[in-house]
Amino acid sequence: MELPGPDFPAGLIVVEDVAIRGLTHAKAAVEVAEGVQRFIAEVHRFIWPVCTQHGPGLMHPELHQGRAFWICGQGPHPFTAVSDRDTT
C-alpha cells in the first residue's frame, strides 16, 4: 500500500500482483472485479461470471454509463452491475 504522494496522487493498493489505481468507486470496482475474476480462473480453474444468455466465455468488467458492469463480449451487452453503488 502506498499513501497518496507525487507518484500516486490517490494512493495505491496491490492485491496479489494486481494494482488497484481507480480514482472513483466505479473505476476501482472494475479493477477489483478483474483481479477477482483472474484469481478464480487461475486458482480454481473456474469461469465466472457466466452470462445467462450466452453461457461461459467473454465476460469482463468495464465502465458502462459511469458504473461498473460485467459486460458480455458475445452481445456485447451489460450483464449485471459489479457494485450497487453509484459513480462516486
Rank of each mutant, 00 (worst) to 15 (best):
V15Q: 02
E42N: 14
A19E: 02
G11N: 11
A28Y: 00
G11Q: 13
G55D: 09
A26N: 01
A28F: 01
Q37V: 06
A26D: 03
G11Y: 12
P49R: 05
A41W: 12
V32T: 02
E31V: 04
V30P: 00
V32H: 09
Q37I: 11
D17K: 11
D17V: 05
H44S: 11
V36Y: 14
V32E: 01
W48L: 05
Q53L: 12
P56L: 05
A26M: 04
F46C: 12
H54Q: 06
C51R: 13
E34G: 12
V18Y: 14
G55N: 10
F46I: 01
P56D: 05
V18H: 15
G11T: 06
V18G: 00
I20P: 04
A10M: 09
C51E: 08
V43D: 09
V30I: 04
H54D: 09
F39T: 08
G57A: 02
V30M: 02
H54Y: 12
F39N: 12
P9Q: 06
P56R: 11
V32L: 14
G22K: 12
P9I: 03
H54T: 03
P49Q: 11
V18S: 13
H25E: 00
V43P: 04
V15N: 02
Q53K: 15
A19T: 04
V18R: 15
G11D: 11
A33V: 01
P56W: 07
G11I: 04
H25C: 01
R45L: 10
I13C: 13
H54M: 06
A19K: 06
K27P: 00
T52M: 08
H54K: 08
A10D: 13
F8T: 07
T24W: 03
W48D: 01
A19H: 00
E16H: 08
V43Q: 14
